[in-house]
């Protein structure tokens, strides 16, 4: 426990964390509401396996956030799926070493 640990093990952990905090600060939802929802997801996931607090923790976070975005109509699953496909295509068509960007 004495070795310094990274704060976020993967960039997407930091990204989803920041997205949630950022949207919370716009007043889109309260933090208590978030905690209630996230706790429920963790509880549900923890019924089938013991969560280690790493990747599975942020997987639960992502699932909760997507459901919240859908419910509040900020981002529907279709919209997310479409952009996910666009990003994937962008990665697969960008030469290695070049910055990956989406066209308009």
């Amino acid at each position: 426990m004495s070795k310094p640990e990274p704060i976020f093990y993967e960039p997407w952990h930091a990204q989803i964390f920041a997205l949630t905090v950022c949207l919370n600060e716009t007043g889109a939802f309260t933090w208590s509401d978030w905690v209630d929802r996230f706790s429920a997801t963790l509880k549900k996931h923890g019924l089938t396996k013991e969560l280690n607090g790493g990747d599975d923790y942020f997987a639960a976070w992502l699932e909760t956030f997507q459901a919240l975005l859908h419910e509040k109509n900020f981002a529907t699953p279709d919209q997310v799926a479409e952009l996910r496909g666009l990003w994937e295509a962008a990665y697969l068509s960008t030469p290695h070493g070049d910055p990956v960007q989406l066209g308009d």
Partner: peptide, 21 residues
Amino acid sequence: HAHAVLPSEPALRVKAIETVL
């Protein structure tokens, strides 16, 4: 590996969410 390395599935989804928002 001629193209950029594809991020993991959750990482792609997070990028997609960020773009939508």
